[in-house]
């Protein structure tokens, strides 16, 4: 039996195992432009630097805030959209196809679009705000609110993805359940809480885990929309790791940031899993 799965194991080892092991190895070495990119073992200096790096922890908070808020928002909207798309109505096929469009767009292109939408003073949002209040909103240059602009852009793009998964879940619910519930005197609103939501929980869980992992690794959206600014208030862990590798040529520290955020992400996903476990919801149907 083991012989049969051996090729698959070797392949997985190459694709996933080797890069992770290489990351771990580099994270214990100084591999930067300061030493001509020749890795030198440094007794875990990168790791102690990471723990004491205020910018890293600020990015952890900023990335978590981005991931948590955008995924929550996407989830609520996606459930509503999926419920709507699950209803029988004319032109359902076209509406479904159109609603998936934002997700199909390359992130960099849609991020550039949002950058111009939020631009002040030339973007439409700023113009409307300016007409109403006589002031500029400066959404992309206010460290207190710029992160909200990135959340809006991300929500716009990825809500269709969650909606699609949830829609698939909705379609697995047998119709006779609702009929029986109605016969027992249940209202449509109650059916949502008693039947629909409990039945789609596994799908919600899957999409939340997928999206959390994706949102935690956000890079392109932030890079194009804000480059991490203003005042570093939207910098994500992915962007920080990228800067260290490609701009600062400090591959040792960049790997450490990636591994550090990987550990934190696993802890985050485990927490979500445990919360669902505690509420006795299984991801297996």
């Amino acid at each position: 039996m083991i012989v049969l799965i051996l090729p698959a194991l070797i392949l997985i080892g190459f694709i996933f195992g080797y890069p992770i092991l290489r990351y771990i190895w580099i994270s214990f070495h100084t591999s930067s432009v300061a030493n001509g990119l020749i890795p030198q073992f440094n007794h875990g200096i990168n790791w102690s630097r990471l723990i004491n790096d205020a910018r890293f922890w600020q990015d952890v908070l900023q990335t978590s805030r981005f991931a948590f808020v955008s995924v929550s928002l996407e989830l609520v909207l996606a459930i509503a959209i999926a419920l709507f798309l699950n209803q029988p109505f004319k032109g359902k096929g076209i509406i479904r196809a159109v609603s998936i469009l934002p997700w199909a767009l390359p992130t960099t292109i849609m991020a550039l679009g949002w950058r111009w939408i939020f631009n002040s003073p030339y973007g439409p949002i700023d113009r409307i705000y300016n007409n109403l209040t006589g002031e500029s909103l400066n959404l992309l240059s206010n460290p207190k609110i710029t992160w909200i602009a990135t959340v809006i852009a991300d929500t716009w793009k990825t809500t269709p993805f969650i909606a699609l998964i949830i829609l698939a879940g909705l379609q697995t619910i047998p119709k006779d359940l609702y009929e029986a519930f109605e016969l027992e005197g249940g209202t449509q609103f109650k059916a949502l809480y008693k039947i629909t939501l409990p039945m789609i929980i596994p799908y919600i869980l899957i999409s939340v885990v997928f999206r959390l992992a994706q949102a935690f690794g956000v890079f392109d959206l932030i890079q194009v929309m804000t480059s991490g600014g203003p005042a570093g208030s939207t910098e994500s862990l992915g962007l920080y790791a990228y800067l260290n590798a490609m701009r600062f040529l400090d591959f040792g520290y960049s790997s450490t940031i990636m591994l550090g955020s990987f550990v934190l992400l696993i802890m985050g996903c485990l927490t979500v899993y445990c919360i669902f476990k505690m509420t006795k919801i299984s991801i297996q149907k």
Partner: peptide, 23 residues
């Protein structure tokens, strides 16, 4: 200097904090 990208990055963050965050 070889570390120009780092020092420019530091400068940009602090200048941005002054101009946008009233620091």
């Amino acid at each position: 200097v070889a570390a120009y990208a780092q020092i420019s990055d530091i400068l940009q963050r602090h200048l941005s904090a002054i101009f946008t965050d009233s620091k």
